[in-house]
Computed example of a mutant assay.
Amino acid sequence: MTDPRSTTIATDLTGPVAPPDLSAAEREHAAWRAARERKLCEPHGWLSPVALLWPTSTPRPLPGLPGEWWVADGRLFTRPTAGDTSALVGDLVRYGAPTSVAVAEGRSLVLGTYLPEGRSGADGEQEVAVEVVRRTGRYGLRLRDPQAPTRTGFPGVPAFAYDPAWVLDVPVRWFDRAVSLTVGAAQPRLVHHVEAVGEVEIAHDHLLLLTGTLAQPRLLFTDETDGVAPWRVLRAGVPGEEPAASDTLRLDLNRATDLPFAFTRFGTCPAPVAGNHLPFAVPAGEKAPR
């Protein structure tokens, strides 16, 4: 496989703009990249996190947040305090009593939003969203601020130019029963529990495990390419087709994407399954963000 040139497709907050002389496959890829970057640029998308906080069993204020926060009996609690200059609002927030929520391991939800002191308006570009996560048995709070510099100064995700040589139809073996595995995470002292649903063979007996579900398998992997994130993810299969209905699986490595941890320090993303490494360069898909 040849090492394709780096893409020079122009970007802005609407995503890549495809030149008119591209092939149909290149135009489809450019449209996919544009949709990908629009999603990243949503007000509370993965370019907006500015903090990841870990409340304890003792009720106390947390930096940048209104109220005080604590964990008890498997739930996260919050309540306003007298010195608050802003207030948490949302459908899940109780007024006049402590608010509490429970989140399953590995899951998250947006508890509410608040308007930081000094900001005005509620147009979705000013309010900070408070996401509750539960990782390795601990509750965390991820603050998503539309005014984060990672979002307001977003130049686009650098990527390799589309190369049809990296669209692979590979043998796949689906497991009769999903295999439960524990993997690392982008944050220290955290783990994730994932399920392997099958394995694919890539280039001369390199077997990599697929995680996720039979309907939506994904491949987390590392390789030898310079200038890419520590690991990337690929949604496997052809859109509109049932992946598990075939003994081959399409891997369009042009669509290998960076996980949230590559854009900010506040992602808790799962690491690849041990052994999901390709001992050669895959100069396709997204590079490490600038």
Rank of each mutant, 00 (worst) to 15 (best):
G212I: 08
A215V: 10
G212L: 09
R107S: 15
P158T: 09
E117H: 14
L111V: 10
T152V: 15
A185C: 13
R107I: 05
G96H: 10
P98W: 09
A102C: 03
V93R: 01
H204V: 03
P188D: 14
L143Q: 08
P146F: 14
R189K: 11
A82P: 01
T211Q: 00
A148W: 10
T78F: 00
A102F: 11
G156T: 13
P188F: 09
E195F: 09
L190W: 09
T213P: 02
V157A: 05
Q187R: 10
Y162S: 02
L111C: 07
V132P: 01
D84F: 12
A165C: 03
D145K: 08
V197T: 11
A148R: 08
G140N: 08
S108W: 14
L143Y: 10
E127D: 12
D123F: 05
G74R: 09
T78M: 06
D163K: 02
G112H: 08
V101W: 10
L210H: 11
D91I: 01
A97Y: 05
A87G: 06
E125V: 03
V157E: 04
Y139E: 08
R107W: 13
V101A: 00
E199Q: 15
T85G: 06
A159Y: 11
E105W: 13
Q216N: 12
G198Q: 13
A104Q: 13
Y114W: 14
E125I: 02
L214G: 06
A215Y: 04
P149G: 12
V183C: 03
L88A: 01
Y139G: 06
G212D: 07
V130R: 01
L76P: 02
G83A: 15
D205W: 11
L207S: 09
L208W: 05
E105V: 10
R79N: 04
A185I: 11
E195A: 15
G74H: 09
L210D: 12
H193E: 06
A122K: 05
P146E: 12
T211M: 00
R138F: 01
V110N: 01
E105N: 12
L168W: 15
T113C: 00
G153N: 09
S120W: 13
G90M: 10
H204R: 13
V172C: 00
G212A: 08
